[in-house]
Design a protein around this nucleic acid. Structure first.
Lengths: 215, 215
DNA sequence: GTCTATACAAAGATAGAC
DNA sequence: GTCTATCTTTGTATAGAC
């Protein structure tokens, strides 16, 4: 039973990080006490401090863990698809998914992290790198797709990534408050138009048949 | 001298709201104590409580004051211009301006308000309305311009507003952390392309001459 | 209408037992 | 490695003087 302690250690870290992600997203970093995180993870503040040296350290660790998850989530197998539009739709659904699927928390946590990056000199470079990686992966994925299909993209990969991420975040922010203000089709179509993959004028008018869109 | 007390009252409100805007943007609502706001406004917490009934009330009042300012800032005289691109550039500069011009604070405060709207049931409807108003004004402004110049926009006014605001916010978020990742020209060009006002492929490659862009 | 002083609550952080 | 108990700091909110 020598492994029990090691396991416990790992599990505690994981539990604390999961609880922190949930709470920081839902209530915000400053609105959540270290004790609340510990309680949610079925541990105590003592354990939290011994592992992460406080709330800040926990946020830092959380950031590391989420780095991979996010990038993977957003960039999975773009270049394998004949048309990137379904992938844009998948991205959109991942980030706007209702609470049970953590999509809602995803956006809130991402914004929470951005704020810390914009305000805290320690977090700044870390979050900046995080966003750069996402841009890079998104851009590379689309560049690969373009090459495979013989399409010409009007921007450099990193620029492409910046625009995809920008429109995604900006639209998701609005969607979170007023879902009807940015329907999925609008986002997907606009993104395609932005990247020159389709004519903006081809956007379907939904004014006539708002219901029965998906029978 | 009967007016002195009335004046003092008005000035105190203004000072507190200004200080709150500054501090909430720079450090975040929860990270700022009521006393810190009062100090920055050269008043005491007593005055703050008598006027706004606490920090929450102050945030609420701040929201009201900023409602007009923001909309005006983003939507000034679009329809008077022959080409909306300069207006997009002006919007971009307003939101990405360095700290002295409050541009930096603008974005941070806007995101701060969004978070409260996404989390607090009381603020939710207020912030939602705020964003809807901005979308409406942006969309109407561009619709007016389109009509005046005989241009055809591919989206309904509110949709247009959502896309402009979305790309603006999403790009500004990234710009705040890494200014070089979203140059002004990229944003302006992409937005024009999104709205079908110009061909995406016409984007100028700046790779060859990164310096000497503005002598 | 504003200030000083203060009560009261909550959060961050640590020391020592298990 | 984790928990209990506790110390210290900080913040919210109010009561009463000016």
């Amino acid at each position: 039973m020598r492994r029990t302690q090691e396991q416990r250690k790992t599990e505690t870290r994981a539990r604390l990080i999961d609880a922190a992600a949930e709470l920081f997203a839902r209530k915000g970093f400053h609105a959540v006490s270290a004790e609340a995180v510990a309680d949610a993870a079925d541990r105590t503040t003592g354990a939290l401090y011994s592992h992460f040296d406080g709330k800040e350290g926990l946020l830092l660790a959380l950031l590391e863990v989420w780095k991979q998850r996010t990038v993977e989530k957003l960039t999975a197998e773009i270049h394998q698809l004949p048309d990137p539009a379904p992938h844009f739709a998948a991205m959109w659904e991942a980030i706007t998914a209702p609470a049970e699927d953590r999509g809602e928390a995803w956006l809130l946590l991402e914004i929470e992290l951005w704020q810390h990056g914009a305000r805290d000199p320690v977090f700044g470079p870390l979050i900046t790198r995080r966003f750069a990686e996402i841009r890079g992966q998104l851009g590379e994925g689309l560049a690969d797709w373009a090459e495979a299909t013989g399409t010409e993209l009007p921007y450099e990969p990193e620029e492409t990534g910046a625009l995809v991420l920008g429109l995604l975040l900006g639209c998701a922010l609005q969607h979170r408050l007023a879902p009807e203000s940015v329907p999925e089709e609008l986002f997907v179509h606009a993104l395609s138009a932005t990247l020159g993959l389709r004519k903006p004028a081809a956007y379907p008018r939904t004014k006539t048949t708002p219901k029965e869109a998906r029978p």
